[in-house]
Structures are given as structure tokens and as C-alpha cells.
Nucleic acid binder design. Structure first.
Lengths: 139, 139
DNA sequence: ATGCTTGCAAACGGTTTGCACGTGT
DNA sequence: ACACGTGCAAACCGTTTGCAAGCAT
């Protein structure tokens, strides 16, 4: 898997350096439920594992990953960004306003409707951001 | 109309002060196409009209308006917020990535689908944010 | 009169950048 | 070797806040 990781980086035109490899590994960690990380989440994780990697580098690497199409940057909250590995199936998010829990979903009907709407206005749909703010239904 | 303005403020539990009245008037200005303002847009407008109102006050007033349900805060771009008067019909936005132009739209199909999806996950839909990033279709 | 508002300037917090040093190929 | 990548600390920039003075009621 570390082979695969290096390959990914090379393919993206990025030298396989320690910081980039470690950050990519953290993003790929499937153990926790949350695969949405802030720059500091990742930085903290690095510090815990005794890697001497600066926060500035984390930001730089994440930006490079974003440009390389390895990662998407989301803005669920007004004043901090979270990053997420891009997987094959691109999905949207619902955020619980009480717990902050993030659930992913995908819906083709909505996607299709969006393209229609853009087209009606003479536009082509390049990208889209949909976030539902929800709370647990109590009965 | 300045009567109406004061009434709005009073109803919202806010004293009718000069800064609040003027900021509300700017938000209500229907002349320009863009009714999406950054705090500085509004500040600049105030300066042009020779009002001695600080940027900090603009932020404070906009936040109060937001809490009072007079205004919504959007985050089309990562590092600046825009504010918009809430009108009866609540709508979504498409932003042209080339020109920055913002077009509003409303679609009931999408809204309904969203409620369904939230419900499927045991959630209740409180709020939602949908932004389409588009570009002019060239032929 | 008195409590909410405001202007100013300083603080904040996430993110970016300049620079000299370190590292991958 | 040499270009590219990195750590550190300082800069940035939109936004928030403490404080003393100013208004609306």
C-alpha cells in the first residue's frame, strides 16, 4: 500500500516526500468514521505520531492535493475548511447541527435536475455544492 | 418607505438607529442587479454617501440582521461572506466561475427530494445550501 | 437617566508566504 | 548536483471584541 501511495503521488506529478506520504495516509485512514479533516486535524495526527511536519506544510500539501484532484475542500462551517479524499462516487453531505456528524449521500434525481436548471439559464454545470443541515428526528 | 424600514427594525427588536436604517436601505436597493453584498461592499457604499459608520458596525448590524431573520449569509467564495435580504420565496444560487455573476433559482423537485433523503437517514431537514458552479454554454 | 449602540484600534484565527535550509531523484 | 520541498516565524485578511463616548427611548 505504501507502493500504491507513492504511485498516486507520482501520477499527480508530486515527488514522494515524507510529508506528502504521511498526509495521504492519514486521509486514507478508514478506521474512524470521519474522513473529513481540517488542516489542524491532520497536523495534530502528525504530531501524535512524532512527525516533525509544520502546519504550513500541511496547508501546502492539501492545496497541492486539491489541485491534483486527489482531495476536495469543503466549507461546512463558515470559518474552517475540511478536506476529503475524492472517491469514485461523488456525493453530497448532510451535517447534523447538534452533533456535527456528517453523513454522505448521493442522488441522481437531484444531479439531473441541476443540469437541467443550469441549461435553462444558458449555463453548463461544472461543479456543485449541496449541504443539508439537519437534526435527528425525535418521536 | 423610511417608515416601513423603521417598522421592520422595531419588529425585529432592534432600535431604529442611523447605521441600521442606512444598511437596511442599501440591502433593499433594487437598482443594481446584485443584491449580494459583502460587509465591505456595504461599508464602501456608506463611505461614498458620507456616512461615518465603521466597518465593525457593519459587521455587527449584519449579524443582528441575520439573527433577526432579515438577512441570510452566504459563502460562495471560501474567504468572504455575502449577505442578502431574505425575501418570501427562498431560492438557491448559481455562480458563474468566469464572471462571478450570481443567478437565483428555485426548484421544488429538488427541495422535496432533499426532505426525503434527510428522512431516510432519520433526520429532519432544517436548512440547506445549494450552489451550482457554472459557465456560459458556448456553441 | 440608562442601557443599548457605535467608532476606533487592537486582537483573533485560519491560512499564506519569504526565506534559508533540507531532501528526493 | 539541483530543483523542488520544508520548517519556522512573520505577514495576511476577513471578522470580532474591549472600551470609552454617543444616542434612542
Amino acid at each position: 500500500m505504501s507502493d500504491k501511495t507513492n504511485t498516486n503521488l507520482k501520477e499527480a506529478g508530486l515527488k514522494a516526500t515524507l510529508p506528502r506520504i504521511k498526509i495521504l495516509e492519514i486521509l486514507q485512514a478508514t478506521s474512524g468514521t470521519h474522513h473529513h479533516y481540517t488542516a489542524e486535524d491532520i497536523y495534530r495526527e502528525l504530531v501524535i505520531n512524532n512527525y516533525d511536519i509544520g502546519l504550513a506544510t500541511v496547508y501546502r500539501v492539501l492545496t497541492q492535493f486539491e489541485n491534483a484532484g486527489i482531495v476536495v475542500k469543503h466549507q461546512f462551517d463558515a470559518n474552517k475548511s475540511v478536506y476529503e479524499l475524492i472517491d469514485a462516487e461523488h456525493h453530497d453531505h448532510m451535517v447534523c447541527v447538534d452533533t456535527g456528524e456528517v453523513t454522505e449521500f448521493h442522488d441522481e434525481t437531484i444531479k439531473r435536475k441541476q443540469r437541467e436548471i443550469a441549461a435553462e439559464h444558458g449555463y453548463e454545470l461544472l461543479d456543485q455544492s449541496l449541504v443539508l443541515y439537519v437534526k435527528k428526528k425525535q418521536k
